[in-house]
Amino acid sequence: MISETELNKIIERINAGDQQALDHLFPLVYQELRQSAHIIRIRFRNQDTLNTTALVHEAYLKLSKADLSKLENKAHFLNLASKAIRQILVNACQSKGTQKRSGEKVQIDDLEEQLRLSEESKSIILQIQDALNILEQKQPNYTKIVECRFFAGLSIEETASVVGSSPSTVKRQWSMAKTWLHQQITAVPV
């Protein structure tokens, strides 16, 4: 756990423009998202979509009121959150034997434990993950866009604020990233 003074220092550095410092906040955001499955159930039960977007925004609401209250730029949070969501989904696809036996205690908080995706979805997400690992090394910006748009379901504008470019650039880059990802995951294995 990060202490409060430590947290404040990190946020000060982020607010001052230190992008490196952002990484220190990742565990906090990741943990919050992981454990906030119940929150989206409460707030969004009456909505048609119960999705990761809702989760991200809900987590932001909560964190910005407490831990991240001094964070000046929401984009920093969205950046971390979209990465965290990617991590959560990938973990959910990789974890084995999470199926609860009858009568066992129901974990209601842990999102990774709760997500029960179809085998097909798991396979696609893991393929996307593999492809993104390649893309990340060459074009980290494109990867960030995929994290924002696909994993976190953020809007073009929000994504633009995270990557620091114009919405139309984000649109074009998102389109190119999608196209490349599609080619990668539909490619016949050699």
């Binding site: 499955a37 989206i40 159930r41 979509t49 119960l50 999705n51 990761t52 609860k100 009858s102 009568g103 129901v106 209601i108 709760q114 997500l115 029960r116 995706l117 179809s118 979805s121 997400i125 379901g153």
Partner: peptide, 18 residues
Amino acid sequence: NLEKEIADSLEINLEPGY
């Protein structure tokens, strides 16, 4: 599809026999 699968799995789902 993913959205739906996420939504479904976030509903409480007690197994038969619980």
